[in-house]
Simulated scan of single mutants.
Amino acid sequence: MKKEDCFYLGKIVKKYSFKGELLAKLDTDEPDLYDNLDAIFLDLRGNLVPFFIEASQLHKSDLLRLKFEDVDTEADADALIKTELYLPLKLLPKLEGNKFYFHEVIGFVIEDKNYGTVGTLSGINDSTAQSLFEINKNGVEILIPMNDEFIVKVDRDNKTIIVETPEGLIDLYISPS
């Protein structure tokens, strides 16, 4: 399994018991969706390795308590702390309406209600306080905040996101030289 075929689910943060149980912090708004998994991929030195789950249960709402097969001691568990967890993309719940996963909208065309076609979504920058659409328009990068008030419609059928940005925002990037 390749990392690009998977999504990041979370990270193992600490041991739970002396029997090899671990606690994982999940990166999701709906942790209960991942309570009954049979297996999960762990990123071990850049390789995704499947681990089979003997038992799992939610712990304090956003932590998942995991007991893996063949992880039976504290030493076994210690070796897995800070390991990232991944699942295949096909296990992501389907989103509808204007909700979307970042990976699913890369390549969509961004259209502004007032400006017209802005360009193609080349990436999403989520390293800032507010996530940004990174749009390529003929080699020029345009950044638009991913603000719910700006997103009018996500049209999956036509691979288009319609936005309505404040007047002049797009012009900041495409000013005549």
Rank of each mutant, 00 (worst) to 15 (best):
L87D: 10
K113W: 05
I162L: 13
E74F: 08
L64F: 00
T165H: 09
L172M: 08
N125I: 05
Y86M: 08
L66K: 06
S131T: 07
D35S: 13
I162F: 13
N36T: 12
Y115M: 00
T83G: 05
S17G: 10
L63F: 04
E30H: 12
N125W: 07
S61I: 12
S175I: 11
L89S: 08
D112N: 04
M1D: 06
D171I: 07
E69I: 06
Y115N: 05
P31W: 11
Y34E: 04
I12E: 02
G119K: 04
L42P: 04
I81F: 01
F41L: 14
A75H: 04
K99P: 03
V154C: 10
L48M: 08
S56R: 06
V140A: 05
V13F: 00
N147M: 13
L26W: 12
S127C: 06
K19C: 05
K99A: 14
M1N: 13
V163F: 03
Q57A: 12
N138K: 15
D32Y: 15
I106R: 00
K94S: 10
K15N: 01
M1P: 13
Y86L: 02
D5I: 07
K153Q: 15
Y34R: 10
G20M: 09
A39D: 08
N36Q: 11
F51M: 14
N36Y: 13
I124K: 01
L92D: 00
G97P: 04
L22A: 01
L64M: 03
L132N: 11
L26V: 06
Y173D: 02
M146G: 03
K3E: 13
Y34V: 13
L44Q: 14
I81G: 05
L44S: 09
F133Q: 11
N47P: 02
K60V: 10
I106M: 06
S17M: 06
K82P: 01
N47E: 14
D126Q: 09
